[in-house]
Measured scan of single mutants.
Amino acid sequence: MSIQHFRVALIPFFAAFCLPVFAHPETLVKVKDAEDQLGARVGYIELDLNSGKILESFRPEERFPMMSTFKVLLCGAVLSRVDAGQEQLGRRIHYSQNDLVEYSPVTEKHLTDGMTVRELCSAAITMSDNTAANLLLTTIGGPKELTAFLHNMGDHVTRLDRWEPELNEAIPNDERDTTMPAAMATTLRKLLTGELLTLASRQQLIDWMEADKVAGPLLRSALPAGWFIADKSGAGERGSRGIIAALGPDGKPSRIVVIYTTGSQATMDERNRQIAEIGASLIKHW
């Protein structure tokens, strides 16, 4: 067993022997301040990774656009098919120029040779490549099948209805392509620590998230040296922004954090800054 596999296998073990965790309302004060600064709703939840206990939450059962955070769930569904012998990570998928959609920095470079399922998941999570996500959605049967996968996990809230990039439209009061912070946090925890996926697939999923290259201005910008984070960000229309993450000190994750916002007129930089400040408060009061 590799060191990384050992780390993920012992996530519940280490967490069980940690000192009790206590909620700190100071972080919620910052979440509410972010709402004021952005002029928009902000949803927040913080779960203990081992027990699933909610440590703090704000608007945990209000719907927010998922945006690209759905790509972690998508690759979880792909990995479940791999575990069941219905898919192979090494299978190569070929596609054409007509398949390319807006923001496809990886797939646009491989029109000639195609990409493997493993490479597509890596591109979808680490670079948020939209064509990679659409190609992977095709392998599982489309958005409705991802929703069905989530329902089978016990998540009857999260739903995907459309493809990239239309799913980022974020129309107010439109339930399409949305989740709730509580539902997303619980589902992410199941994917990373539950028995739904094999140990190898859980490790692969967290490795992809740990290698995320496009979430630097968010929670990662607030992390002290030595902290662990595996995350996936999302951005959408109407001032929408979000991030889902597993993080913790001492090089291992111990909490799940989900943050979503929508309806702001603020710039992307300002949305990023507010999420980073929430992260800084979380870490300060850990």
Rank of each mutant, 00 (worst) to 15 (best):
Val29Trp: 15
Lys32His: 15
Lys32Ser: 10
Ala34Glu: 03
Glu35Cys: 02
Asp36Thr: 15
Gly39Ala: 11
Gly43Met: 00
Leu47Trp: 00
Leu49Lys: 04
Ser51Met: 07
Gly52Arg: 06
Gly52Ile: 02
Ile54Asn: 06
Phe58Lys: 06
Arg59Tyr: 03
Pro60Ala: 15
Glu61His: 15
Glu62Cys: 06
Phe64Leu: 01
Ser68Glu: 00
Ser68Ile: 06
Val72Glu: 07
Leu73Trp: 03
Cys75Leu: 05
Gly76Arg: 00
Leu79Ile: 05
Ser80Tyr: 14
Val82Trp: 07
Asp83Val: 05
Glu87Met: 11
Asp99Thr: 09
Leu100Asn: 04
Ser104Tyr: 04
Leu111Arg: 08
Leu111Ile: 14
Thr112Trp: 15
Glu119Ala: 09
Leu120Cys: 05
Leu120Arg: 00
Ala123Phe: 02
Asp129Ile: 00
Thr131Lys: 03
Ala133Met: 02
Leu136Arg: 00
Thr138Pro: 07
Thr139Arg: 11
Gly142Ile: 04
Pro143Asp: 01
Pro143Phe: 04
Phe149Lys: 07
Leu150Ala: 10
His151Asn: 15
Asp155Tyr: 02
Leu160Gly: 04
Arg162Ile: 02
Trp163His: 09
Glu166Val: 10
Asn168Ser: 08
Glu169Gln: 12
Pro172Lys: 12
Asn173Pro: 06
Asp174Leu: 03
Glu175Ser: 13
Asp177His: 00
Thr178Cys: 06
Thr179Glu: 00
Pro181Arg: 00
Thr186Trp: 15
Leu188Asn: 04
Arg189Ile: 08
Leu191Met: 14
Leu192Tyr: 08
Leu192Glu: 00
Gly194Asn: 11
Leu199Tyr: 11
Gln204Ile: 13
Gln204Met: 13
Ile206Val: 11
Asp212Tyr: 03
Leu219Ser: 03
Ala222Tyr: 09
Ala222Glu: 13
Gly226Met: 07
Ala230Lys: 02
Lys232Asp: 01
Ala245Thr: 06
Ala245His: 00
Leu247Ser: 03
Gly251Ser: 13
Lys252Asp: 15
Pro253Gln: 09
Arg255Pro: 00
Tyr260Cys: 05
Gly263Asp: 10
Ser264His: 05
Gln265Glu: 14
Gln265Gly: 14
Met268Asp: 07
Arg271Trp: 05
Arg273Trp: 10
Gln274Pro: 05
Gln274Phe: 10
Ile275Trp: 04
Glu277Leu: 12
Ala280His: 15
Ala280Cys: 09
Ser281Cys: 11
Leu282Gln: 06
Lys284Leu: 12
Trp286Cys: 00
